[in-house]
Design a protein around this nucleic acid. Structure first.
Lengths: 357, 357
DNA sequence: AGTTAGCACTCGAACTTCCTGAGTGCTAAA
DNA sequence: TTTAGCACTCAGGAAGTTCGAGTGCTAACT
């Protein structure tokens, strides 16, 4: 059954008031907060009806109402007004983004910190790669025991490793290996680097010392590591300020879930690049999150990478505000990192790809 | 004045009992815990005396005694017995260390996690570099807009960056630049890369497109980044299980200090490589740590790098146990990473230097 | 001088009891 | 369908009470 306009309004007030105060909302409060032209008795009737329908619940008989997960969901879907960020907020986001954008290896944790600072909730930042191939293979001869492997990947990341071996080899051998690897190991995926391939490479170069397998091993490591998602959690201490986490046991449960078992490969299963997803209370799959809400926004991290930023908080979360902020950050990141439409941002900023960890 | 043997024993019992239970310790408890051949009245006299001397204090008149910072300090310096780790514990440490040692970029956070799991306290892991120089410069030409810079540093780390420019250049120019940089930019520190040096390099190669300054800029970035310390904090949620942090405000204060303002450059000012340092309560400089204790152990991370692992907890901390664990971890790390005495650990493990992030 | 038994005293923690008031649901009138 | 009126409920805080672990002190003992 469709809700009457007044009931929608009342539900909306209850949700917003409860988000703000964390206290059950009574008929009187609803009246004085919203500009309704009816009496408290009417509001009471409506509150009872909304409870009947499952949008609200009562902690105990003589208390006001608090929204249920269904109530929040309805609010988020139908009632919530899009919130505009203030000029300061957009300014702060812009500043952080542009100042941090050059240090790619720290980007993830910086983005997490930004999100958690802005929202005052624990924030997560995840980057998930798509399988890459090797675009270019280089071996740099250093001395008779040492050389460097440099890999340029299809996503334009550069990976390297210094190899130091207890036996010596010729510069020429390294040069030949470099050429052969460039010929046979480029453009293929990690599981295509088979023992057969390695053995045949070994033969064709005349490598009897196992250099080939060392190099191939590194290539496999690098390629398979492009597939996994990595993530960080920032600002979980923010939970402790919230009234719902005054009980240290609760706080501990959620925090240790976040810091240990939160697996980033699994969590954000659905998320079309660009928009925002809200998971309210029991909508979360993880048992530990059943009393919490999660808001996720995804962005295009360029180089075939997808990034997700998210925020974890109590179901009583300022959905509108948080969603606006995350969405703005994600948009900014997509613009700064996304491959196609990157605006030139001055000379130094042109060097934005790479791996300077 | 020197403490009598019995008073030492009593102090020791009070400290250990309080560490275990977090409850003020009374004369009766002391008696039944330790094998003292005297009556509770005697113990009471001694307790009063120890309080007089400043080793103990009373939360309120009708309660037992708890150790003061001075009491803990005396205990740590004089009374504490060195604790041997159990076989399982050393086993767990060894396993984690050897399984994790190949992923150098994640090592720090892994070590932090290990320490915090073992001790059940928040743990910090810091690596501080010593200023490095460039040992070898390589530029890899990719296409007319793109090349890779590869730097081999004096500490054997390899850094790289993909440079993509909006204008084109010749392969030969890149080759010449590579040679010139190898000649003039190796062996010098970051502040020796002056505008003069850049300009004269530019002239000598005939670079009119500013390639030189792009490359030099990257070199400066890399060299100056070797000087800073980086650190991570793991497992701060462990605080919430401790009785002294049941008050969420307290927990929040310490946790946000740890996650934000804890500056790793400053904290571990003194620490001769190898042994363990204990900072008790007010001995800490940071205001936020005055009620907590910190235990630090440093290790040799090889390549001229020093690492520190530490643990933060209440003054009521199991000093003996934590110190033993940290010391064991630090020792293991030094052995695995330290330059000189590295034992061969199988073929694959020989590739332990490098930067495969 | 150091140790012990005995005893009166203290005071926080925990458990009662009581009270208050915010908020309700219901009924009857508009 | 809305409203005014009213009796009812019940969590949470204030005040009072009890309980007992632990103390310090004194006086006797070794």
């Amino acid at each position: 059954m469709e809700l009457s306009e007044r009931r929608k309004k009342i539900l909306s007030i209850v949700v917003e008031e409860y988000i703000e105060t964390a206290e059950p909302v009574g008929s009187k409060t609803v009246l004085q907060r919203g500009c309704l032209s009816c009496s408290s008795a009417t509001v009471r009737n409506d509150l009872a009806a909304l409870e009947q329908e499952g949008y609200l619940e009562q902690p105990h008989t003589s208390a006001g109402r608090i929204p249920t997960a269904k109530g929040y969901r309805f609010y988020v879907n139908e009632l919530m007004k899009e919130q505009k960020l203030t000029a300061e907020e957009t300014e702060q986001i812009n500043a952080t983004l542009s100042s941090k954008i050059e240090e790619l290896d720290k980007l993830m944790s910086d983005v997490g910190n930004l999100a958690s600072e802005l929202t005052h909730y624990p924030a997560l930042a995840v980057t998930s790669g798509t399988p890459a191939t090797i675009k270019r293979f280089d071996l740099i001869y250093i001395d008779q025991n040492t050389f460097i492997i440099v890999l340029l990947l299809s996503n334009n990341a550069v990976k390297n490793k210094l190899i130091h071996l207890p036996f010596s080899f010729e510069e020429d051998m390294i040069r030949r290996l470099s050429a052969v690897f460039n010929a046979s190991f480029t453009g293929i995926k990690d599981d295509e680097i088979t023992t057969n391939l390695i053995v045949s490479t070994e033969r064709s170069v005349g490598d009897v010392m196992g250099l080939t397998s060392v190099i191939a091993g590194f290539a496999i490591d690098v390629l398979s590591s492009t597939k996994v998602s990595e993530g960080v959690i920032s600002g979980s201490e923010n939970l402790l300020k919230l009234p719902e986490f005054q009980d240290p046991t609760k706080a501990h449960k959620l925090m240790s879930y976040l810091s240990t078992s939160a697996d980033f490969n699994n969590l954000p299963n659905l998320s079309p690049s660009g928009d925002v997803k809200v998971l309210i209370g029991p909508e979360n799959v993880a048992e530990e999150l059943k009393d919490s809400s999660v808001i996720l926004a995804s962005y295009d991290a360029g180089d075939n990478m997808k990034g997700i930023i998210g925020v974890v908080g109590p179901t009583r979360m300022d959905y509108s505000n948080v969603a606006a902020k995350l969405s703005y950050i994600a948009e900014g990141l997509s613009q700064l990192l996304g491959g196609s439409s990157r605006p030139p941002t001055g000379f130094g900023k042109l060097m934005i790809k790479g791996d300077d960890s």
